[in-house]
Design a protein around this nucleic acid. Sequence first.
DNA 1: CTGTTCATTGGCAATTTAGCCAAATGACCA
DNA 2: TGGTCATTTGGCTAAATTGCCAATGAACAG
Lengths: 106, 106
Amino acid sequence: MKAKSKARFEARAKIIKAMAHPARLMIVDELSRRERCVRDLTEMVGSDVSTVSKHLSVLRNAGVVRDEKRGSKVYYILRTPCILNFMSCVETVIKSKAEEQLDLAK
Amino acid sequence: MKAKSKARFEARAKIIKAMAHPARLMIVDELSRRERCVRDLTEMVGSDVSTVSKHLSVLRNAGVVRDEKRGSKVYYILRTPCILNFMSCVETVIKSKAEEQLDLAK
DNA sequence: CTGTTCATTGGCAATTTAGCCAAATGACCA
DNA sequence: TGGTCATTTGGCTAAATTGCCAATGAACAG
């Protein structure tokens, strides 16, 4: 039982880890609006193409996005849009933390 | 504008990063049921106390949990229970990935 | 006061991650 | 065929993360 639940937490951590980077969050956010090719995402993120390509492979391996090749371009697509629900809670944490800071400052 | 949104993704990533570890997910999960002292959590996680203490400080710095000292013990409390909504989506990603694997195996 | 429990911190070695450049591959155009 | 654009991969270094042990400090029982 214990091993099983440990494995489950590891599986979850793997996915969350895939999201735990500003550039990758930016990518996920953009893909939530429309699919995008690597070129577009690279321009948006502002790093080297190779860096962005690696970020995308992290997201793909985690199952967060999938890719679709069309002609010479590769389009990336958000696989599970519920990922965005994530964000509203993360914002709550940020806000709650900000309030704490405020209290401390009093 | 761009810098502002970049800062926002960085803030979000910081919180998500704090969750991106199996032991810390286990802790958050446990704290969602009841507050716990370090001793209890250490036993549950099965690492050294010092390791667990550091995990807790990561979660505290991110604003995910808060601590409350009572006598010689320190209790940890989940600050924003919505964190758990996270998990249902993460499970969706896991399931969707499993289905993909299944398709590939055909 | 002394010994014990609870918890945090410093330090260290091993592992992982990030991001750049250069090279390789594939599609497409002229 | 040659050239160019789009993307991925290998290699490398710098930085961050993990987890253990040892040392420290606070609370408390006797």
